[in-house]
């Protein structure tokens, strides 16, 4: 095997490793909120370090956010983390996205206002 080929193999292996690590990373760690229902965004992406946030805020129950409702009542001890918010809080195509924005804002900002901790102004959650 020539030196040249060896280098190429090494480089390719390295790239594959980096890619594998990166994609594994991004699958497990949620660092932003990016709902696929927003077609074109008006505001910069919301940074949300999922696990750090919930640890700092002392949120152990997943259903605080990933909730399940039945007949208008929230069901305790059941959660919906595999489901994107917009799958239940649906938007029809071409709809004005306000109703979905409202749901996110009420949950995130609503708790921050109540707890008097965490961001509440547009610029804090949508930083440029």
């Amino acid at each position: 095997m020539g030196k040249r080929t060896l280098i190429i193999y090494v480089v390719i292996t390295l790239f594959v490793c980096i890619f594998a690590v990166m994609s594994g990373y991004s699958q497990e760690d949620v660092t932003t909120v990016e709902d696929s229902a927003f077609e074109e965004k008006m505001r910069p992406t919301v940074q949300f370090l999922h696990d750090e946030h919930n640890e700092a805020a002392g949120l152990e129950e997943c259903d605080v956010c990933h909730h399940v409702y039945k007949d208008g009542e929230k069901i305790e001890d059941e959660s919906s983390e595999e489901t994107e918010c917009s799958e239940c809080h649906t938007l029809n195509k071409g709809d004005n996205p306000l109703s979905l924005v409202k749901v996110y804002h009420l949950q995130c900002k609503g708790c921050h206002q109540k707890e008097k901790a965490g961001p509440i102004m547009c610029s804090e959650c949508h930083p440029r």
């Binding site: 004005n96 306000l98 109703s99 924005v101 409202k102 804002h105 009420l106």
Partner: peptide
């Protein structure tokens, strides 16, 4: 203004057309 309309939507659940930012 979008930001104002969003605030109306959050507090009163009313909304209307808005300008792009």
């Amino acid at each position: 203004l979008c930001a104002h309309v969003i605030l109306w939507k959050e507090s009163w659940d009313i909304g209307w057309w808005y300008f792009s930012d």
